[in-house]
Design a protein around this nucleic acid. Structure first.
Lengths: 201, 201
DNA sequence: AGTTCCCCATGACAGATGTCATGGCTTGTG
DNA sequence: CACAAGCCATGACATCTGTCATGGGGAACT
């Protein structure tokens, strides 16, 4: 019997996935969590064999949870399911020791199969997402450029970005200009959207 | 027995919700669809009692589907479930004749209860979403302002917005300026994000 | 030691953007 | 009808942004 921890902030989805996984004879959902922190705390207690984590949750990112679990419970395999699969996320997730990465568009038997695969030490990444990740390539942005671009996402004026990044406005403009050039966008807002779509920020 | 049509583009979620609803003795999922168009076509054939529709789908909006269903199948009650509930959506949905509106954060028994409620002619709107909708108020934007602001969402330069809206760049700037004033933002990008958060565009 | 890359900053310039005043046209309303 | 409100446009002005040149300091690699 494979013991599963399920973490997803959407109660309905979580309950539904639990119901679905429980239909399998060899799978058992032993715990559920609605937030990243809760997932980690629960995992410490119940020590599941496999953790199925949603990527986007209110507090901790799914990847952050995976990182913690990899450290604290090396025997527990972590896999991530997500609605909005961006290339960068996949890369970060694999770096964090995640063994499975799926979009929520897959069918239920694929999910069950992957749970079994990661439990026996295997890995599985959705082919479509993998292809996207490869085509997206590495981020050409320097760390600082990524920081600044992220602050620009909300549409804030440069003044405010500079304050929040503790930089001079001139420097901010330089970084943004560089980022705009690298992304082929025509202004920082477009560049920010582009970079987010690629998963670079 | 209440016959249900389930529409959601995420296969996993759809299957899971089907599994969950089928656990109830008086509910039966008689059809599933992955897109809006598919949902309408399927509904014409199977004539379900209740349609449970996801708000965001690749092609048609959940609200658009609800509108079609209300016309073609007046005996079928439509309810919408969504991950990202914005106030404006709720308003549009109710105008389209939707009888139930829920975020995916609700528990499974709430879902089942609401299915029964709408089937007997009742209505149900998630209290939290309702409160949000009320506090958001009506859109202060004129139709044209909303159009232009929507085009501004992607970060395009004014030149392009003007082309896409078939307006002079000067006019676009006037509308945007007005919208910026009404939203209290400091530039059009912030205004666009704000308006989207409020569900105005 | 030299080279390269990143970080941070400044200054200058052109072009994009936000704001305001103004005016003509249409539509709906008291 | 008079009036208000929305739609569309133009022009002028101040400010914001994007771009480029320049330079110092630090880390990494050859």
């Amino acid at each position: 019997m494979i013991r599963i921890l399920l973490a997803d902030d959407e109660h309905l989805i979580r309950g539904a996935m639990a119901a679905l996984l429980s239909l399998e004879d060899d799978l058992e959902v032993v715990a559920q969590a609605a937030t990243g922190a809760e997932a980690i705390a629960t995992a410490r207690v119940v020590r599941p064999d496999v953790a199925v984590i949603d990527l986007q949750m209110p507090d901790l990112d799914g990847v952050a949870v995976a990182q913690s679990l990899a450290l604290e419970l090396p025997t527990c395999s972590t896999m991530i399911v997500t609605s909005h699969g961006r290339p960068g996320h996949l890369k970060r997730a694999l770096a964090a020791g995640v063994r499975g990465f799926l979009p929520k568009t897959v069918s239920s038997d694929v999910l069950a199969t992957v749970v079994r695969t990661v439990h026996t030490g295997g890995r599985y990444v959705d082919p479509a997402l993998a292809a996207e990740a490869i085509s997206a390539g590495d981020s050409p942005l320097t760390p600082r450029e990524a920081d600044v671009l992220e602050l620009a996402l909300e549409g804030a004026p440069i003044e405010e970005i500079a304050r929040r990044a503790s930089l001079s406005p001139g420097t901010v403009r330089n970084y943004l200009s560089s980022a705009v050039g690298k992304t082929g966008a025509s202004n920082r807002h477009e560049a920010a959207r582009f970079a987010r779509a690629k998963g670079w920020i």
